[in-house]
Amino acid sequence: THFTSQQLQELEATFQRNHYPDMSTREEIAVWTNLTEARVRVWFKNRRAKWR
């Protein structure tokens, strides 16, 4: 999946605040970024792996 810079900005900003967002937070992010909750969940999983 290719993310727009706007989507990445929103995802990264949320990641800085919370590395493990809950389901409702992921659903909110999905609405803001026009992505599915599953895409958001996978992005956070991959981002945490990169962060370690």
Rank of each mutant, 00 (worst) to 15 (best):
T1S: 10
T1N: 12
T1G: 13
T1Q: 11
T1C: 14
T1K: 13
T1A: 12
T1F: 14
T1D: 12
H2E: 11
H2N: 10
H2I: 10
H2A: 11
H2L: 10
F3C: 05
F3W: 07
F3T: 04
F3R: 03
F3D: 02
F3Q: 02
T4Y: 05
T4L: 05
T4N: 07
T4P: 03
T4K: 04
T4D: 05
S5I: 12
S5R: 14
S5C: 14
S5T: 12
Q6E: 11
Q6G: 08
Q6W: 15
Q6H: 11
Q6M: 10
Q7H: 04
Q7R: 03
Q7W: 05
Q7P: 01
Q7F: 04
Q7S: 04
L8W: 11
L8A: 06
L8E: 10
Q9R: 13
Q9N: 09
Q9D: 09
Q9P: 02
Q9K: 12
Q9G: 07
Q9S: 11
Q9E: 11
Q9T: 10
Q9H: 12
Q9C: 14
E10D: 12
E10I: 15
E10S: 13
E10R: 15
E10G: 08
E10Y: 15
E10C: 15
E10W: 15
E10Q: 15
E10N: 09
E10A: 15
E10F: 15
L11A: 01
L11N: 01
L11R: 00
L11W: 01
E12R: 02
E12S: 02
E12W: 05
E12Q: 02
E12D: 03
E12V: 03
A13W: 12
A13L: 10
A13D: 08
A13Q: 09
A13F: 10
A13H: 09
A13Y: 10
A13T: 09
A13N: 08
T14P: 01
T14Q: 15
T14R: 15
T14K: 09
T14L: 15
F15C: 04
F15K: 01
F15V: 02
F15S: 00
F15A: 03
F15N: 01
F15Q: 01
F15M: 00
Q16S: 09
Q16Y: 08
Q16N: 08
Q16D: 06
R17D: 07
R17H: 09
R17N: 08
R17S: 08
R17F: 09
R17G: 07
R17Q: 10
N18W: 08
N18S: 05
N18K: 04
N18A: 04
N18I: 09
N18C: 14
H19E: 03
H19Q: 11
H19M: 13
H19T: 03
H19D: 02
Y20L: 03
Y20S: 05
Y20D: 04
P21C: 06
P21D: 01
P21N: 01
P21W: 05
P21T: 02
P21G: 03
P21E: 01
P21L: 03
P21A: 06
D22Q: 05
D22F: 02
D22P: 07
D22V: 05
D22K: 06
D22G: 06
D22H: 05
D22A: 08
D22N: 10
D22Y: 03
D22I: 05
M23H: 12
M23C: 07
M23S: 07
M23T: 08
M23V: 09
M23E: 08
S24Y: 09
S24N: 12
S24E: 11
S24R: 14
S24Q: 14
S24P: 11
S24V: 12
T25N: 05
T25S: 08
T25Q: 14
T25L: 11
R26V: 09
R26D: 02
R26C: 07
R26M: 10
R26S: 02
R26I: 14
R26A: 03
E27A: 12
E27W: 09
E27D: 06
E27T: 12
E28P: 00
E28D: 09
E28T: 10
I29Y: 03
I29N: 01
I29D: 01
I29R: 00
I29T: 02
A30C: 05
A30Y: 03
A30T: 03
A30N: 01
A30V: 02
A30I: 02
V31I: 13
V31Y: 13
V31E: 13
V31M: 13
V31A: 14
V31W: 08
V31P: 00
W32H: 14
W32D: 09
W32G: 10
W32Y: 13
W32R: 15
W32P: 02
W32K: 15
T33Y: 09
T33I: 13
T33L: 15
T33Q: 06
T33M: 14
T33H: 07
T33C: 11
T33N: 07
T33K: 01
N34F: 06
N34S: 09
N34Q: 10
N34T: 05
N34R: 07
L35Y: 02
L35Q: 07
L35M: 10
L35T: 13
L35A: 07
L35K: 05
T36H: 04
T36N: 05
T36G: 04
T36M: 03
T36A: 05
E37S: 05
E37I: 06
E37T: 05
E37W: 04
E37F: 04
E37N: 04
A38G: 08
A38S: 11
A38F: 13
A38T: 09
A38E: 13
A38D: 10
A38V: 10
A38H: 12
A38R: 12
A38P: 11
R39C: 13
R39W: 11
R39V: 15
R39P: 01
R39H: 10
R39N: 10
R39I: 15
V40P: 00
V40K: 00
V40R: 01
R41M: 06
R41E: 06
R41K: 08
R41V: 04
R41F: 06
R41W: 06
V42A: 14
V42H: 12
V42R: 15
V42W: 14
V42F: 11
V42Y: 11
W43I: 01
W43Q: 00
W43S: 01
W43C: 01
W43T: 00
W43Y: 02
W43A: 00
W43K: 01
W43V: 00
F44R: 00
F44W: 03
F44E: 00
F44Y: 06
F44N: 00
F44G: 00
F44I: 01
F44P: 00
F44C: 02
K45R: 12
K45Q: 11
K45A: 10
K45S: 08
K45I: 14
N46V: 13
N46F: 12
N46W: 15
N46E: 13
N46D: 09
N46G: 07
R47L: 04
R47S: 02
R48D: 01
R48Q: 05
R48N: 04
R48G: 01
R48V: 06
R48S: 02
R48H: 03
R48A: 04
A49W: 07
A49T: 07
A49R: 15
A49N: 08
K50W: 08
K50Q: 13
K50P: 03
K50N: 07
K50A: 13
K50Y: 08
K50H: 08
K50S: 08
K50C: 09
W51A: 09
W51R: 05
W51N: 07
W51F: 10
W51E: 12
W51Y: 09
W51L: 10
W51S: 06
R52E: 08
R52L: 14
R52A: 09
R52T: 08
R52H: 11
